[in-house]
Amino acid sequence: MNKVVSGAEEAIRDIADGNTLMLGGFGLCGIPENCINALVKKGVSGLTCISNNAGVDDFGIGLMLKQKQVKKMIASYVGENAEFERQLLSGELEVELIPQGTLATRCLAAGYGMPAVFTPAGVGTEVADGKESRVFNNKEYLMEMAFDADFAIVKAWKGDTQGNLVYKETARNFNPLMAMAGRVTIAEVEELVPAGELDPDHIHTPGIYVHRIFQGRAYEKRIEQRTVRTRE
């Protein structure tokens, strides 16, 4: 089953104003750079974006924020983006901050066909406001609903023509979870190979979850915090 499309423009062709998108990555690590750039170029707006972070001012989702393409952001941590904080405090941007494990598990639930999950994260805090809770074994848990996103956009290291994906190091993060959770899943990869070249034992995301795949170009892979030690 060939899932290959020509590039980012074709992959995102039917993403429309008001859609809900999941975007993989942690900070700037493992983000779908090609698709983000294509979305910025296309100029779709009124988007709801589900992503762990919101990029930085001039890279990643930050580029979409700058153009006011995002109506609502669902994330766990947004500390590295001054424009985001400005739009949030001024009320231009709607934001739902949720615990990182809850974000991951709500993706997982969607990909596993479960409507909801129970987690202790946020019990007794404002995250619990308006949510159903239950006590299991004398501990309270919040009921958190599976996400429902029109599109999931993920970045993998390698992929094959069937849409099977392999991630590299900590660039895996939310990518396999979101890949499972989108109604339509778009994967951009650094290296696209023919089916059969990836070892079936080493595939992280089975192609059944992936609808469109392409080999991305000119990855910048920006480092957010360059930390080094000196040789003795």
Partner: peptide
């Protein structure tokens, strides 16, 4: 200041 909880709420709950 609104930075978000990141993984802190999950960590402290468990």
């Amino acid at each position: 200041m609104v930075k978000g909880m990141g993984g802190a709420m999950d960590l402290v709950a468990s």
